[in-house]
């Protein structure tokens, strides 16, 4: 049985082998998409669109921007699909694309710069440095859903620069030098921002816990 597939120009393509799109693996779909199978690509989009959108949202904290940037990432993904060699998973590859687009957007809007007061705060270690170190784990004993909601609320309160460092290092697992390269700053700045962001996070999470318990 052959399957007709219509590409973006409206040309009818005949797939020599039938692909059961919903149950096909990412690898199969990627191979199909690399040969121009738009239906395979559409399935990949449907499968991973939420993850890409969530990453864009976590960086931009804005629904419309997150939708636009994640869609732009899919367009770029399709255009560069031939470059994808499968060294990392397709989702990881696409996530890197959306992160780069978000970083470009933040740079254009100069949102990655720390404000002067914030900069001073960061350099001096901020209020967090003056406070005693929170020794009780602020996330202990929480249900996962609650922990996620709390982390998200705390992330919301960080500046773009600090949030981005945390996302790249903690969620994406990038090393200092890789974070520095992507953010266009020195490793020292990354370390300093990460330290400040973590201490702020600890303070915010502890504060949120106290709020809940009182």
């Amino acid at each position: 049985m052959t399957r007709l597939n219509i590409d973006s120009r409206g040309r009818v393509q005949t797939m020599s082998k039938r692909i059961d799109y919903p149950s096909a693996s990412d690898e199969t779909l990627v191979r199909g998409a690399q040969k121009g199978d738009m239906l395979a690509f559409e399935e990949l989009v449907a499968r991973h669109r939420d993850r890409l959108y969530a990453r864009a949202f976590s960086m931009m904290r804005n629904e419309d921007e997150a939708i636009d940037l994640s869609q732009e990432a899919w367009v770029k993904g399709w255009q560069r699909l031939k470059q994808f060699q499968g060294e990392a998973s397709f989702l990881t590859w696409m996530t890197r694309i959306v992160i780069n687009l978000c970083l470009d957007q933040l740079r254009r809007q100069k949102r990655l710069r720390t404000d002067s007061i914030e900069q001073l705060d960061e350099e001096s270690g901020g209020v967090e440095r003056q406070m005693p170190t929170v020794t009780v784990n602020p996330t202990a004993g929480l249900e996962r859903a609650e922990l996620r909601a709390r982390i998200d609320k705390a992330l919301q309160q960080l500046s773009y620069a600090h949030r981005t460092v945390l996302i790249l290092h903690e969620f994406e697992g990038l090393e200092y030098k890789e974070v520095a390269k992507r953010m266009g700053c020195s490793i020292g700045t990354v370390m300093s921002r990460l330290f400040y962001a973590r201490r702020r996070m600890a303070g915010l999470l502890a504060g949120l816990k106290e709020e809940r318990e009182s």
């Binding site: 559409e42 959108y53 899919w74 929170v134 996330t139 982390i151 996070m201």
Partner: peptide
């Protein structure tokens, strides 16, 4: 403290769904 924050974050990002239907979202990309 640093270890607690470091351990708390990975894998605990709030899941979010695209606030658009599959067709509408894909239509824009197409």
């Amino acid at each position: 403290q640093l270890r607690a924050v470091k351990a708390a974050l990975p894998g605990n990002e709030l899941a979010r769904s695209v606030p658009e239907t599959r067709e509408f979202y894909w239509g824009t990309i197409q």
